[in-house]
Computed example of a mutant assay.
Amino acid sequence: MSSLQDIQNIIKAKDNTRNYVNLSGIPSICKSKPCMLGVDEAGRGPVLGPMVYGVAFCPIEKKSILEDLGCADSKALTEEKRDEIFSKMLAQVDALNSVGWAAEVISPNYISNSMYKRAKHSLNEVSMNSAIDLIKKVAESGANITEVYVDTVGPPEKYQAKLCAIFPDYKIIVAKKADSIYPIVSAASIVAKVTRDHALKVWRFTEGLEMDYTEFGSGYPGDPLTKKFIREQIDSVFGYPLLVRFSWSTAENMLKEKAAICTFEEIDDEDSTKKVKTKLISSFFAPPPENSVKTRKRHKFFDERYLRMTNAFE
Score class of each variant (00 low, 15 high):
1 M>C: 06
12 K>Y: 07
13 A>W: 07
16 N>L: 08
33 K>F: 00
35 C>M: 08
36 M>Q: 02
40 D>F: 10
49 G>T: 14
54 G>Y: 03
58 C>S: 07
58 C>F: 02
61 E>L: 00
64 S>F: 02
71 C>L: 08
82 R>G: 09
83 D>R: 13
84 E>P: 13
84 E>V: 14
89 M>G: 10
92 Q>R: 13
96 L>V: 11
101 W>R: 06
101 W>L: 06
115 M>Q: 13
116 Y>C: 02
116 Y>L: 10
117 K>Q: 03
117 K>C: 03
129 N>V: 03
130 S>K: 02
135 I>C: 08
137 K>H: 09
146 T>I: 04
151 D>K: 06
151 D>I: 10
154 G>Y: 11
157 E>I: 15
162 K>G: 10
164 C>P: 03
168 P>V: 13
176 K>T: 12
195 T>S: 12
197 D>Y: 06
201 K>L: 14
203 W>F: 06
205 F>I: 01
209 L>A: 03
210 E>R: 00
217 G>V: 07
219 G>M: 06
223 D>N: 11
231 R>E: 09
236 S>Y: 12
241 P>V: 04
242 L>E: 09
243 L>Q: 02
244 V>S: 00
245 R>Q: 04
248 W>Q: 02
256 K>A: 15
257 E>P: 15
260 A>M: 15
260 A>W: 13
264 F>E: 15
266 E>A: 12
277 K>L: 09
279 K>H: 12
288 P>G: 07
295 T>A: 07
299 H>R: 09
299 H>N: 11
304 E>S: 12
304 E>F: 09
311 N>G: 11
